[in-house]
Design a binder for these strands. Structure first.
Lengths: 232, 232
DNA sequence: CAGTGGTCTAGACCACGAT
DNA sequence: TCGTGGTCTAGACCACTGA
């Protein structure tokens, strides 16, 4: 018996050690919570907290009655933080700049309207803006805001504050989808981001909802060479 | 007062409702755990579970003594699941195929050795493999395995099983880094993935460690149009 | 110093689901 | 059916940190 195991972090560490040392093999069942609690001399709730945490991380598979097993194919979970772009730039120690390039209210084109679930009569606000880091182009934002859901956006000062930040402060959302992909820079992107032709650009698409209605749809096109990283 | 609030999910839902309804504004402090427990008629631990969960999701900021506040700039956390490619393909309902294209053991080139922390005398195994979905190229895998850490890899059957899956089963890792970016397809990628020239390809770079030593370094280059999505 | 969140405990009941 | 994890409770002590 090693040092005292009393808190959930040390239980988790000990479980990790056993998995890593192959004492508990991938696919194998591990003792149940009550037995582990007895072995470690702590409460079952403490063991539960540790194991639940590891299961959320994908290292354990837990099922009632079937027990807890070491995951066979631990699915890596990469948690990406997607901050407001201003904070992302400032976090790199660069000076942030913002320039609104286009702003137009009106019915969106059919494919946008369909993706956002806006009918023909509905109105949307289209914004195109450039985010700068130390005066250099950093990312291009192309956003549609559903004015049926956020009417106040029609008169919001988007020449001073980015759509992202204004919406965060004024239009909460309940859930959303996010997607990452790579695209060849089109003419507009080449001009705005001052990148060579051809360029491969990293793109983030986001669609956010308030209950059943789309609040906003945005595509962020990052400058060439952009990388999004995280610990695993 | 709505229906009874007894479990942490309903506490969380109620807190979300209040944030969303602007009863608790961004930046504002909310009541402490004990008060909320009294209001909801449940134990403090239940409130704690709900609020801790929301804090992990980035919607609340919690600090001892300072209390709990509604986050000013809720950082969106996108959790990407990075499964084994075989499961990713099969999950789309396609048939998975795998072809080893190159395999060579020896000292890695300087930039790879540096990234992996291998000295001049160290040996590595270089694998290039193609993953197929319904016979079509799906992703190109370019992997370096540190033979100093995983000597058994030298004789592993990588013509039958992908480096990813073999390593998961035989070489546990303690932590890693992952990065996503976009690249212009080079000649090798164009040939292997059968994509037009030029193409923008989505790339995943991963470096995994066992304690202090790099286990493997891999770059997965996905076929054109690949998108990685997740709920928000 | 004192208020707040972080955690542990011992016990209890329940929901799920494998057999 | 009944073993297992999921959760709740009431109470307690502690760690951190703002005032």
């Amino acid at each position: 018996m090693s040092g005292s195991i009393k808190n959930w972090q040390s239980v988790q560490a000990e479980v990790l050690r056993r998995i890593h040392a192959r004492i508990w093999r991938p696919g194998a069942q591990i003792p149940n919570e009550a037995d582990l609690a007895a072995e470690f001399g702590c409460a079952r709730a403490t063991v539960n907290r540790a194991l639940r945490n590891l299961a959320e991380a994908g290292l354990l598979d837990r099922r009632r009655k079937a027990g807890t097993r070491v995951a066979l194919q631990p699915v890596a979970k990469a948690t990406l933080d997607i901050p407001v772009i201003r904070l992302e730039v400032e976090g790199r120690g660069q000076r942030y700049g913002y320039r609104l390039m286009a702003r137009e209210a009106g019915p969106p084109p059919p494919e946008i309207a369909a993706a956002m679930g806006i009918d023909a009569a509905g109105a949307a606000l289209h914004l195109v803006a450039l985010h700068l880091a130390d005066e250099d182009p950093y990312a291009l934002e192309d956003r549609w805001i559903n004015l049926g859901v956020v009417p106040a956006a029609r008169n919001a000062p988007f020449d001073e504050i980015s759509g992202n930040e204004w919406l965060l402060a004024h239009a909460p959302y309940t859930h959303g989808e996010i997607g990452f992909s790579a695209v060849i820079a089109d003419a507009a992107a080449i001009a705005a981001l001052a990148c060579p032709d051809p360029s491969a650009l990293f793109v983030l698409d986001r669609l956010t909802w308030d209950q059943t209605r789309v609040v906003t749809k945005v595509r962020i096109t990052y400058g060439p060479g952009h990388e999004m990283t995280t610990a695993l």
